[in-house]
């Protein structure tokens, strides 16, 4: 008896499993695994590993700025932090949309999580990191004083919110989807707008409650625009 004959005889003895039962089992397991992986915390955990280091580092830099306050005057460093905000927001959107930037969107759309979930998870992570950095920076700049902390927070969040809203609107257009890096142009635009407002209305000091209301409205608009952008991902797939 040759080795080949022995192998064939042994394999034939065991036969093959029932294909219908096997297929049904594989399908049911795949479905269970999909449900397990499709939860929001699981998606966020998966995407956290794929966000590039610079996205985290830019948030850390904002927190580090107030720490150099002792060596430099308060006002310029705070102004630097506020001026950087549009670019920080723009970077966040670019990082979240990076599948588009690298022409990998179609590939991401075919994955288990879907492009919609991946974009949602990445934006939530980057947004949370940047928001925490802004809060920490505001607290450090104001040295814990409630009044000045609110002013500092509003001054930092306002340009961030405006940039994010405009970037979301832009990313939903055909041009925006084809040119993800155009978010930098939006950031530069907001930065210039901020400079113009600061120079033309230097003498005007708005009431904190008015600014707080404006910030709240902008945050609501930002959430709506974010939701629309997430849904656009799904629409483009469908």
């Amino acid at each position: 008896m040759k080795d080949r004959e022995l192998k064939d005889a042994l394999k034939a003895y065991a036969g093959t499993p029932d294909p219908f039962r096997k297929d049904a089992f594989i399908r049911s397991v795949a479905e269970k695994e999909k449900r397990k992986r499709a939860t929001i915390p699981a998606q966020i955990f998966v995407q956290a590993r794929y966000i590039r280091v610079y996205a985290w580092l830019t948030a850390v830099v904002i927190v580090l700025l107030p720490l150099f306050e002792a060596s430099v005057k308060f006002a310029p460093l705070f102004k630097v932090a506020a001026d950087v905000m549009p670019f920080l927001a723009g970077l966040g959107v670019i990082e979240a949309m990076r599948a588009e930037a690298h022409n990998m969107a179609e590939l991401e759309q075919t994955t288990l999580l879907s492009a919609k979930s991946a974009f949602f998870a990445r934006m939530i992570l980057i947004g949370a990191a940047q928001f925490a950095a802004i809060l920490a920076a505001a607290a450090l700049f104001s040295k814990g004083e409630a009044g000045s902390m609110l002013t500092a927070g509003i001054n930092l969040i306002l340009p961030h919110c405006v940039t994010n809203i405009l970037c979301f609107v832009l990313e939903r257009t055909k041009f925006g989807r084809e040119n993800v890096w155009s978010c930098f142009a939006v950031a530069a635009g907001v930065f210039l707008l901020k400079l113009i407002v600061e120079t033309t209305a230097a003498s005007f000091t708005p009431d904190n409650s008015l600014l707080l209301l404006l910030t709240a409205v902008l945050i609501v608009i930002e959430i709506v625009e974010f939701k629309k952008t997430v849904n656009t991902e799904e629409l483009s797939w469908n």
Partner: peptide, 19 residues
């Protein structure tokens, strides 16, 4: 799972001798 299913089935079949 597909990759290992048949192998594990055959391995078990040789032990229990019942499909």
């Amino acid at each position: 799972i597909e990759q290992y299913y048949d192998k594990i089935y055959r391995y078990i079949f040789y032990k229990v001798n019942n499909r």
